[in-house]
Design a protein around this nucleic acid. Structure first.
Lengths: 209, 209
DNA sequence: GTACAATACGAGTAATTACTCACTTTTATT
DNA sequence: AATAAAAGTGAGTAATTACTCGTATTGTAC
Protein backbone atom coordinates (compact mmCIF):
# COMPACT_ATOMS: atom_id res chain seq x y z
CA UNK A 1 0.00 0.00 0.00
CA UNK A 2 2.72 2.41 0.98
CA UNK A 3 6.13 1.87 -0.57
CA UNK A 4 9.03 4.02 -1.61
CA UNK A 5 12.62 2.85 -1.56
CA UNK A 6 12.13 -0.90 -1.04
CA UNK A 7 15.85 -1.17 -0.42
CA UNK A 8 15.60 -3.00 2.86
CA UNK A 9 16.72 -6.56 3.27
CA UNK A 10 13.73 -8.88 3.50
CA UNK A 11 13.84 -10.93 6.72
CA UNK A 12 14.18 -14.61 5.96
CA UNK A 13 14.85 -16.01 9.37
CA UNK A 14 12.54 -15.92 12.36
CA UNK A 15 15.13 -14.03 14.39
CA UNK A 16 15.20 -11.08 12.06
CA UNK A 17 11.43 -11.02 11.76
CA UNK A 18 11.30 -10.55 15.51
CA UNK A 19 13.76 -7.71 15.37
CA UNK A 20 11.73 -6.07 12.67
CA UNK A 21 8.71 -5.98 14.95
CA UNK A 22 10.85 -4.93 17.89
CA UNK A 23 12.03 -1.91 15.95
CA UNK A 24 8.51 -1.03 14.90
CA UNK A 25 7.28 -1.24 18.47
CA UNK A 26 10.10 0.95 19.71
CA UNK A 27 9.43 3.47 16.97
CA UNK A 28 5.75 3.57 17.85
CA UNK A 29 6.62 4.23 21.47
CA UNK A 30 9.05 7.00 20.61
CA UNK A 31 6.86 8.64 18.01
CA UNK A 32 4.06 8.71 20.54
CA UNK A 33 6.36 10.01 23.24
CA UNK A 34 8.40 12.70 21.57
CA UNK A 35 6.93 12.97 18.07
CA UNK A 36 8.20 11.85 14.72
CA UNK A 37 10.84 14.50 14.11
CA UNK A 38 12.36 14.36 17.56
CA UNK A 39 12.62 10.59 17.48
CA UNK A 40 16.08 9.98 16.02
CA UNK A 41 16.87 6.71 14.29
CA UNK A 42 19.67 6.14 16.77
CA UNK A 43 17.22 6.59 19.63
CA UNK A 44 14.80 4.14 18.02
CA UNK A 45 17.57 1.60 17.69
CA UNK A 46 18.58 2.13 21.30
CA UNK A 47 14.97 1.83 22.48
CA UNK A 48 14.60 -1.41 20.53
CA UNK A 49 17.94 -2.60 21.89
CA UNK A 50 19.15 -3.12 18.36
CA UNK A 51 22.28 -1.62 16.77
CA UNK A 52 21.73 1.18 14.36
CA UNK A 53 23.21 -0.89 11.56
CA UNK A 54 20.63 -3.59 12.05
CA UNK A 55 17.85 -1.06 11.91
CA UNK A 56 19.01 0.00 8.49
CA UNK A 57 19.03 -3.58 7.31
CA UNK A 58 15.26 -3.67 7.49
CA UNK A 59 14.32 -0.10 6.91
CA UNK A 60 15.43 2.06 4.05
CA UNK A 61 15.30 5.12 6.26
CA UNK A 62 13.43 6.92 8.95
CA UNK A 63 10.42 7.61 6.79
CA UNK A 64 10.28 3.96 5.83
CA UNK A 65 9.79 3.11 9.50
CA UNK A 66 6.88 5.52 9.67
CA UNK A 67 5.39 3.96 6.58
CA UNK A 68 5.75 0.42 7.87
CA UNK A 69 4.10 1.52 11.07
CA UNK A 70 1.33 3.16 9.12
CA UNK A 71 0.78 -0.02 7.13
CA UNK A 72 0.42 -2.03 10.28
CA UNK A 73 -1.95 0.52 11.77
CA UNK A 74 -4.01 0.85 8.62
CA UNK A 75 -4.35 -2.91 8.27
CA UNK A 76 -5.61 -3.24 11.82
CA UNK A 77 -7.96 -0.35 11.30
CA UNK A 78 -9.26 -1.75 8.03
CA UNK A 79 -9.96 -5.07 9.64
CA UNK A 80 -11.86 -3.30 12.39
CA UNK A 81 -13.91 -1.52 9.79
CA UNK A 82 -14.71 -4.68 7.93
CA UNK A 83 -15.89 -6.38 11.07
CA UNK A 84 -17.80 -3.30 12.07
CA UNK A 85 -19.59 -2.69 8.83
CA UNK A 86 -20.32 -6.28 7.93
CA UNK A 87 -22.16 -6.81 11.20
CA UNK A 88 -25.87 -7.50 11.00
CA UNK A 89 -27.73 -4.58 12.52
CA UNK A 90 -31.27 -5.55 11.59
CA UNK A 91 -33.60 -5.70 14.54
CA UNK A 92 -31.30 -3.66 16.74
CA UNK A 93 -32.26 -0.38 18.31
CA UNK A 94 -30.29 2.68 17.30
CA UNK A 95 -28.73 2.75 20.75
CA UNK A 96 -27.53 -0.81 20.33
CA UNK A 97 -26.11 -0.06 16.91
CA UNK A 98 -24.19 2.89 18.29
CA UNK A 99 -22.81 0.79 21.13
CA UNK A 100 -21.62 -1.94 18.79
CA UNK A 101 -19.99 0.51 16.44
CA UNK A 102 -18.35 2.83 18.93
CA UNK A 103 -17.06 0.44 21.59
CA UNK A 104 -14.61 -1.41 19.33
CA UNK A 105 -13.16 1.91 18.21
CA UNK A 106 -12.62 3.00 21.76
CA UNK A 107 -10.85 -0.27 22.50
CA UNK A 108 -8.76 0.10 19.38
CA UNK A 109 -7.69 3.62 20.18
CA UNK A 110 -6.70 2.53 23.65
CA UNK A 111 -4.56 -0.27 22.28
CA UNK A 112 -2.90 1.91 19.69
CA UNK A 113 -2.55 4.68 22.21
CA UNK A 114 -0.52 7.57 21.10
CA UNK A 115 0.13 6.23 17.69
CA UNK A 116 -2.14 8.65 15.97
CA UNK A 117 -0.11 11.51 17.42
CA UNK A 118 2.51 10.85 14.81
CA UNK A 119 -0.12 11.19 12.12
CA UNK A 120 -2.08 14.16 13.35
CA UNK A 121 0.74 16.54 12.70
CA UNK A 122 1.66 18.18 9.44
CA UNK A 123 4.91 16.28 9.08
CA UNK A 124 3.43 13.28 7.39
CA UNK A 125 4.46 12.57 3.84
CA UNK A 126 2.01 13.15 1.04
CA UNK A 127 1.28 9.52 0.25
CA UNK A 128 0.83 8.71 3.91
CA UNK A 129 -1.73 11.48 4.18
CA UNK A 130 -3.37 10.01 1.09
CA UNK A 131 -3.53 6.61 2.75
CA UNK A 132 -5.20 8.14 5.77
CA UNK A 133 -7.66 10.00 3.57
CA UNK A 134 -8.42 6.74 1.80
CA UNK A 135 -9.19 5.16 5.13
CA UNK A 136 -11.43 8.07 6.02
CA UNK A 137 -13.29 7.63 2.76
CA UNK A 138 -13.79 3.96 3.51
CA UNK A 139 -15.28 4.87 6.87
CA UNK A 140 -17.65 7.37 5.32
CA UNK A 141 -18.63 4.79 2.72
CA UNK A 142 -19.32 2.21 5.41
CA UNK A 143 -21.41 4.57 7.50
CA UNK A 144 -23.24 5.70 4.39
CA UNK A 145 -24.24 2.14 3.49
CA UNK A 146 -25.38 1.50 7.04
CA UNK A 147 -27.49 4.66 7.00
CA UNK A 148 -29.12 3.68 3.75
CA UNK A 149 -29.93 0.32 5.23
CA UNK A 150 -31.77 2.19 7.97
CA UNK A 151 -33.54 4.49 5.57
CA UNK A 152 -34.02 3.30 1.99
CA UNK A 153 -35.20 6.74 0.87
CA UNK A 154 -31.85 8.37 1.58
CA UNK A 155 -30.09 9.79 -1.46
CA UNK A 156 -26.40 9.13 -1.94
CA UNK A 157 -25.61 12.78 -1.46
CA UNK A 158 -27.49 13.18 1.79
CA UNK A 159 -26.23 9.86 3.10
CA UNK A 160 -22.64 10.83 2.35
CA UNK A 161 -23.10 14.15 4.07
CA UNK A 162 -24.64 12.57 7.15
CA UNK A 163 -21.86 9.96 7.21
CA UNK A 164 -19.26 12.72 7.07
CA UNK A 165 -20.93 14.42 10.00
CA UNK A 166 -20.98 11.19 11.99
CA UNK A 167 -17.34 10.50 11.21
CA UNK A 168 -16.48 14.01 12.40
CA UNK A 169 -18.44 13.53 15.58
CA UNK A 170 -16.67 10.28 16.37
CA UNK A 171 -13.29 11.86 15.76
CA UNK A 172 -14.35 14.68 18.02
CA UNK A 173 -15.17 12.14 20.67
CA UNK A 174 -11.61 10.88 20.70
CA UNK A 175 -10.34 14.41 20.94
CA UNK A 176 -12.62 15.04 23.90
CA UNK A 177 -11.41 11.87 25.61
CA UNK A 178 -7.84 13.08 25.49
CA UNK A 179 -8.48 16.26 27.41
CA UNK A 180 -9.48 14.53 30.64
CA UNK A 181 -8.06 11.23 31.79
CA UNK A 182 -10.43 10.60 34.68
CA UNK A 183 -12.14 7.29 33.79
CA UNK A 184 -15.47 8.23 35.35
CA UNK A 185 -15.57 11.48 33.46
CA UNK A 186 -14.53 9.75 30.25
CA UNK A 187 -17.27 7.18 30.66
CA UNK A 188 -19.75 9.98 31.11
CA UNK A 189 -18.53 11.76 28.03
CA UNK A 190 -18.77 8.56 26.01
CA UNK A 191 -22.32 7.99 27.20
CA UNK A 192 -23.30 11.56 26.37
CA UNK A 193 -21.65 11.31 23.00
CA UNK A 194 -23.49 8.11 22.21
CA UNK A 195 -26.76 9.83 22.97
CA UNK A 196 -25.91 12.64 20.59
CA UNK A 197 -24.92 10.14 17.91
CA UNK A 198 -28.08 8.12 18.39
CA UNK A 199 -30.21 11.26 18.18
CA UNK A 200 -28.55 12.31 14.99
CA UNK A 201 -28.81 8.86 13.43
CA UNK A 202 -32.45 8.69 14.39
CA UNK A 203 -33.03 12.01 12.74
CA UNK A 204 -31.38 10.84 9.53
CA UNK A 205 -33.13 7.47 9.64
CA UNK A 206 -36.51 9.13 9.94
CA UNK A 207 -36.11 11.19 6.83
CA UNK A 208 -35.71 14.37 8.82
CA UNK A 209 -36.76 17.92 7.87
CA UNK B 1 1.45 34.20 28.84
CA UNK B 2 4.17 32.15 27.24
CA UNK B 3 7.79 33.18 27.85
CA UNK B 4 11.09 31.45 28.10
CA UNK B 5 14.39 33.05 27.17
CA UNK B 6 13.30 36.69 26.86
CA UNK B 7 16.68 37.43 25.35
CA UNK B 8 15.35 39.16 22.29
CA UNK B 9 15.86 42.82 21.72
CA UNK B 10 12.69 44.77 22.33
CA UNK B 11 11.78 46.78 19.23
CA UNK B 12 12.00 50.50 19.91
CA UNK B 13 11.59 51.92 16.48
CA UNK B 14 8.58 51.50 14.23
CA UNK B 15 10.72 49.87 11.56
CA UNK B 16 11.72 46.99 13.73
CA UNK B 17 8.17 46.49 14.99
CA UNK B 18 7.13 45.98 11.39
CA UNK B 19 9.84 43.43 10.84
CA UNK B 20 8.77 41.59 13.92
CA UNK B 21 5.29 41.09 12.49
CA UNK B 22 6.74 40.30 9.07
CA UNK B 23 8.73 37.47 10.57
CA UNK B 24 5.72 36.13 12.47
CA UNK B 25 3.61 36.17 9.33
CA UNK B 26 6.28 34.35 7.36
CA UNK B 27 6.66 31.78 10.11
CA UNK B 28 2.91 31.19 10.20
CA UNK B 29 2.91 30.60 6.46
CA UNK B 30 5.83 28.19 6.61
CA UNK B 31 4.59 26.30 9.66
CA UNK B 32 1.27 25.81 7.93
CA UNK B 33 2.94 24.80 4.70
CA UNK B 34 5.68 22.42 5.74
CA UNK B 35 5.19 22.00 9.48
CA UNK B 36 7.12 23.36 12.43
CA UNK B 37 10.15 21.08 12.29
CA UNK B 38 10.71 21.34 8.58
CA UNK B 39 10.50 25.12 8.64
CA UNK B 40 14.11 26.21 9.19
CA UNK B 41 14.88 29.57 10.72
CA UNK B 42 16.85 30.47 7.62
CA UNK B 43 13.82 29.68 5.49
CA UNK B 44 11.60 31.80 7.72
CA UNK B 45 14.03 34.71 7.40
CA UNK B 46 14.13 34.26 3.61
CA UNK B 47 10.34 34.08 3.42
CA UNK B 48 10.07 37.24 5.49
CA UNK B 49 12.76 38.87 3.34
CA UNK B 50 14.76 39.57 6.46
CA UNK B 51 18.35 38.53 7.15
CA UNK B 52 18.82 35.68 9.56
CA UNK B 53 20.69 37.93 11.93
CA UNK B 54 17.77 40.30 12.19
CA UNK B 55 15.46 37.43 12.96
CA UNK B 56 17.58 36.55 15.96
CA UNK B 57 17.47 40.13 17.16
CA UNK B 58 13.79 39.76 17.94
CA UNK B 59 13.45 36.09 18.68
CA UNK B 60 15.54 34.11 21.10
CA UNK B 61 15.23 31.02 18.94
CA UNK B 62 12.99 28.97 16.77
CA UNK B 63 10.74 27.93 19.61
CA UNK B 64 10.37 31.53 20.66
CA UNK B 65 8.85 32.26 17.27
CA UNK B 66 6.32 29.51 17.80
CA UNK B 67 5.49 30.89 21.20
CA UNK B 68 5.05 34.42 19.93
CA UNK B 69 2.79 33.06 17.22
CA UNK B 70 0.83 31.10 19.78
CA UNK B 71 0.40 34.21 21.90
CA UNK B 72 -1.03 36.10 18.96
CA UNK B 73 -3.33 33.23 18.10
CA UNK B 74 -4.47 32.65 21.66
CA UNK B 75 -5.19 36.33 22.15
CA UNK B 76 -7.37 36.42 19.05
CA UNK B 77 -9.10 33.25 20.11
CA UNK B 78 -9.69 34.51 23.61
CA UNK B 79 -11.24 37.67 22.29
CA UNK B 80 -13.51 35.59 20.10
CA UNK B 81 -14.56 33.59 23.12
CA UNK B 82 -15.29 36.63 25.17
CA UNK B 83 -17.46 38.09 22.47
CA UNK B 84 -19.12 34.77 21.96
CA UNK B 85 -19.90 33.96 25.53
CA UNK B 86 -20.84 37.42 26.66
CA UNK B 87 -23.54 37.64 24.00
CA UNK B 88 -27.13 37.83 25.17
CA UNK B 89 -28.90 34.65 24.11
CA UNK B 90 -32.17 35.15 25.95
CA UNK B 91 -35.21 34.93 23.72
CA UNK B 92 -33.31 33.20 20.94
CA UNK B 93 -34.18 29.79 19.59
CA UNK B 94 -31.61 27.05 20.00
CA UNK B 95 -31.00 27.14 16.26
CA UNK B 96 -30.24 30.85 16.43
CA UNK B 97 -27.90 30.34 19.35
CA UNK B 98 -26.01 27.67 17.46
CA UNK B 99 -25.72 29.89 14.41
CA UNK B 100 -24.35 32.78 16.40
CA UNK B 101 -21.84 30.62 18.21
CA UNK B 102 -20.59 28.52 15.31
CA UNK B 103 -20.37 31.02 12.48
CA UNK B 104 -17.69 33.23 14.08
CA UNK B 105 -15.56 30.18 14.72
CA UNK B 106 -15.81 29.11 11.12
CA UNK B 107 -14.76 32.57 10.01
CA UNK B 108 -11.89 32.55 12.49
CA UNK B 109 -10.59 29.19 11.38
CA UNK B 110 -10.69 30.35 7.78
CA UNK B 111 -8.68 33.43 8.64
CA UNK B 112 -6.12 31.54 10.66
CA UNK B 113 -6.06 28.80 8.08
CA UNK B 114 -3.42 26.23 8.56
CA UNK B 115 -2.10 27.70 11.73
CA UNK B 116 -3.49 25.02 13.93
CA UNK B 117 -1.58 22.45 11.92
CA UNK B 118 1.54 23.47 13.74
CA UNK B 119 -0.21 22.81 17.03
CA UNK B 120 -2.01 19.60 16.33
CA UNK B 121 1.20 17.61 16.18
CA UNK B 122 3.13 16.19 19.06
CA UNK B 123 6.06 18.54 18.62
CA UNK B 124 4.64 21.31 20.73
CA UNK B 125 6.48 22.22 23.88
CA UNK B 126 4.95 21.38 27.22
CA UNK B 127 3.96 24.88 28.23
CA UNK B 128 2.48 25.58 24.83
CA UNK B 129 0.33 22.50 25.16
CA UNK B 130 -0.65 23.78 28.58
CA UNK B 131 -1.67 27.09 27.08
CA UNK B 132 -3.84 25.31 24.54
CA UNK B 133 -5.40 23.17 27.24
CA UNK B 134 -6.12 26.32 29.24
CA UNK B 135 -7.93 27.72 26.24
CA UNK B 136 -9.91 24.52 25.90
CA UNK B 137 -10.91 24.75 29.53
CA UNK B 138 -12.07 28.30 29.00
CA UNK B 139 -14.24 27.15 26.13
CA UNK B 140 -15.77 24.38 28.20
CA UNK B 141 -16.39 26.84 31.00
CA UNK B 142 -18.09 29.26 28.63
CA UNK B 143 -20.31 26.60 27.12
CA UNK B 144 -21.12 25.26 30.57
CA UNK B 145 -22.30 28.67 31.76
CA UNK B 146 -24.41 29.08 28.64
CA UNK B 147 -25.99 25.67 29.17
CA UNK B 148 -26.83 26.47 32.76
CA UNK B 149 -28.46 29.67 31.60
CA UNK B 150 -30.69 27.50 29.42
CA UNK B 151 -31.42 25.01 32.16
CA UNK B 152 -31.13 26.16 35.75
CA UNK B 153 -31.50 22.61 37.06
CA UNK B 154 -28.23 21.48 35.47
CA UNK B 155 -25.58 20.36 37.95
CA UNK B 156 -22.02 21.55 37.43
CA UNK B 157 -20.87 18.05 36.70
CA UNK B 158 -23.45 17.32 34.05
CA UNK B 159 -23.06 20.75 32.52
CA UNK B 160 -19.30 20.31 32.30
CA UNK B 161 -19.74 16.93 30.68
CA UNK B 162 -22.21 18.25 28.15
CA UNK B 163 -19.94 21.19 27.42
CA UNK B 164 -17.04 18.82 26.83
CA UNK B 165 -19.16 16.87 24.40
CA UNK B 166 -20.17 20.02 22.56
CA UNK B 167 -16.58 21.21 22.37
CA UNK B 168 -15.59 17.83 20.93
CA UNK B 169 -18.36 17.98 18.37
CA UNK B 170 -17.32 21.42 17.21
CA UNK B 171 -13.71 20.33 16.89
CA UNK B 172 -14.92 17.35 14.93
CA UNK B 173 -16.75 19.71 12.63
CA UNK B 174 -13.52 21.45 11.71
CA UNK B 175 -11.88 18.11 11.05
CA UNK B 176 -14.75 17.14 8.79
CA UNK B 177 -14.48 20.40 6.90
CA UNK B 178 -10.87 19.70 6.05
CA UNK B 179 -11.54 16.42 4.30
CA UNK B 180 -13.57 17.93 1.47
CA UNK B 181 -12.97 21.38 0.06
CA UNK B 182 -16.08 21.62 -2.09
CA UNK B 183 -17.92 24.68 -0.71
CA UNK B 184 -21.38 23.28 -1.38
CA UNK B 185 -20.55 20.08 0.42
CA UNK B 186 -18.96 22.00 3.27
CA UNK B 187 -22.02 24.17 3.63
CA UNK B 188 -24.15 21.05 3.79
CA UNK B 189 -21.94 19.51 6.43
CA UNK B 190 -22.06 22.68 8.49
CA UNK B 191 -25.85 22.74 8.27
CA UNK B 192 -26.10 19.09 9.28
CA UNK B 193 -23.68 19.60 12.10
CA UNK B 194 -25.65 22.54 13.39
CA UNK B 195 -28.75 20.37 13.48
CA UNK B 196 -26.92 17.76 15.50
CA UNK B 197 -25.61 20.41 17.88
CA UNK B 198 -29.04 21.96 18.28
CA UNK B 199 -30.60 18.57 19.00
CA UNK B 200 -28.04 17.82 21.63
CA UNK B 201 -28.34 21.22 23.25
CA UNK B 202 -32.11 20.88 23.28
CA UNK B 203 -31.77 17.52 24.98
CA UNK B 204 -29.52 18.97 27.64
CA UNK B 205 -31.68 22.05 28.07
CA UNK B 206 -34.77 19.95 28.61
CA UNK B 207 -33.30 18.01 31.47
CA UNK B 208 -33.02 14.86 29.38
CA UNK B 209 -33.37 11.21 30.45
C1' DG C 1 28.36 67.66 11.43
C1' DT C 2 29.88 64.76 14.91
C1' DA C 3 29.19 61.32 18.35
C1' DC C 4 26.58 57.70 19.86
C1' DA C 5 23.14 54.22 19.85
C1' DA C 6 20.14 51.29 17.57
C1' DT C 7 19.53 48.31 13.89
C1' DA C 8 20.98 45.52 9.73
C1' DC C 9 23.59 42.01 7.93
C1' DG C 10 25.27 37.21 6.51
C1' DA C 11 29.44 34.29 6.40
C1' DG C 12 30.84 31.11 9.61
C1' DT C 13 30.43 27.50 13.50
C1' DA C 14 29.29 23.91 16.65
C1' DA C 15 26.16 20.45 17.22
C1' DT C 16 23.04 17.15 15.64
C1' DT C 17 21.40 13.47 12.77
C1' DA C 18 20.32 10.25 9.04
C1' DC C 19 22.74 6.93 7.10
C1' DT C 20 27.09 3.85 5.32
C1' DC C 21 30.37 0.24 5.16
C1' DA C 22 33.98 -2.74 6.30
C1' DC C 23 34.06 -6.29 9.25
C1' DT C 24 32.34 -10.10 12.57
C1' DT C 25 29.15 -13.55 14.07
C1' DT C 26 25.39 -16.74 13.49
C1' DT C 27 22.61 -20.00 10.89
C1' DA C 28 21.62 -23.14 6.96
C1' DT C 29 23.23 -26.63 3.64
C1' DT C 30 25.94 -30.34 2.10
C1' DA D 1 33.22 -29.95 9.10
C1' DA D 2 33.41 -26.96 5.51
C1' DT D 3 31.27 -23.47 2.84
C1' DA D 4 28.14 -20.04 1.87
C1' DA D 5 24.59 -17.03 2.91
C1' DA D 6 22.25 -14.31 6.01
C1' DA D 7 22.32 -11.36 9.82
C1' DG D 8 24.72 -8.42 13.22
C1' DT D 9 27.60 -4.41 14.45
C1' DG D 10 28.95 0.53 15.58
C1' DA D 11 32.55 3.91 14.60
C1' DG D 12 32.58 7.17 11.16
C1' DT D 13 30.73 10.66 7.56
C1' DA D 14 28.36 14.02 4.93
C1' DA D 15 24.78 17.08 5.24
C1' DT D 16 21.79 19.96 7.65
C1' DT D 17 20.48 23.46 10.90
C1' DA D 18 20.01 26.60 14.82
C1' DC D 19 22.42 30.21 16.17
C1' DT D 20 26.70 33.80 16.79
C1' DC D 21 29.49 37.72 16.15
C1' DG D 22 32.22 41.12 13.97
C1' DT D 23 31.26 44.62 10.87
C1' DA D 24 28.37 47.90 8.08
C1' DT D 25 24.49 50.88 7.94
C1' DT D 26 20.97 53.84 9.56
C1' DG D 27 18.77 56.86 12.81
C1' DT D 28 19.02 60.38 16.77
C1' DA D 29 20.62 64.30 19.70
C1' DC D 30 23.29 68.29 20.23
Amino acid sequence: MVDKKQKRRVPQQARSRERYDLILDAAARLFAGVGYEAATTNAIAREADVPIGSLYQYFAGKEDILHALADRYLEDMQQLHEESFSADISGLSIEEIVDRQIDPYIAFSEQHLGFKHAFLGAEVSADLAAAMAELDDAVVEGIKTALQRLNGQLSDKRATMAATVLKGMVKGLFGALESDTDPAFQAGVIAEYKRALADYIRRVAQGEG
